[in-house]
Design a protein around this nucleic acid. Sequence first.
DNA 1: AATAAGTGCTACATTGATGAGACACTTAGA
DNA 2: TCTAAGTGTCTCATCAATGTAGCACTTATT
Lengths: 165, 165
Amino acid sequence: MLADDPSATIAAIAAAAGVDRRTVYRRFASREDLMAAVYGARYDAVEKAIEAARLREAPVAVALHRYVEGIIAANRKWPVETSRMLRDVTIRERRRRLIDEVDAFLRRAADEGLLRSDLPPGWVAAVLPPLLEQAAEELSELSAAQAADVVVDTLLRGVGTPQAR
Amino acid sequence: MLADDPSATIAAIAAAAGVDRRTVYRRFASREDLMAAVYGARYDAVEKAIEAARLREAPVAVALHRYVEGIIAANRKWPVETSRMLRDVTIRERRRRLIDEVDAFLRRAADEGLLRSDLPPGWVAAVLPPLLEQAAEELSELSAAQAADVVVDTLLRGVGTPQAR
DNA sequence: AATAAGTGCTACATTGATGAGACACTTAGA
DNA sequence: TCTAAGTGTCTCATCAATGTAGCACTTATT
């Protein structure tokens, strides 16, 4: 539900979870607390995925695949749109740190010859998150590892045939 | 404003447009009317872009580029997230028709050897819209045509170096 | 200069979401 | 069987957004 609509009401969220509004208020003091808990859990999952990917030291092709697979799994477990949960300073800082770490990794990948260096700055960093979101959602029949195969393949080689290149 | 948050209040939208709430209510009877007008304008622009791309008869590489360029321009002019404006039946039907037309085009592109046929069904259709949204937003220094070059290149060839393939 | 059109501002009524309290009921554990 | 924990339901208070009306002011046109 929050995946679709971050402005969803407490009543709608509760209904989607199959419980009453009162039950939600027993667990969370306010809507804000609920959102913070959900986003916190998502960031926990994303941070674990990034840590497991060893973005700074693993070979870049391996790190890329592990990262993609980990984020797809995190997106599936916590399908929430967090780009507007920015009023919470800790969430914003965590988000900043994650973006910085992925940016540094993409630069290393370009330096080490996995990614092209002739693209507009920030372009790869911009297209990767939506690719991961789509993979989590549209490739639901595939495991996270298999979906990661598709995403890495699409990212590195594109979807054109060889003669289209 | 609506690009960021479809649930933005009338007051916030008016402030972003530099006018008073009363002025908005003079032009639009309700918030719903305002949304319908904005989404209608966006769909008008998208339909024009698709018509200009001649998806059914132009050579597929040409049609793809024209389509991408047209949608980037439309996204820039009307940066609104419409995926949840689905209660309005006419908007939903227009959206359905556009999706069908693009899907048919992507099948023709695969049949004619521009796109690979070995990808999960619907995958290209899934990744294309977010690519266009990112291009409209992140490649703001480039013209729509130049941004289309980057998008088509990324879509067909990916962002990996040749040795990464 | 007068009039028309449009806007900003303020105040108000209505509605829906948030948040809370109390009670009856259900389920689990001792 | 009794008790504790948890839930659903109902009701209520508060607040924010929507929508409206009226008036003063500004700008454009005649």
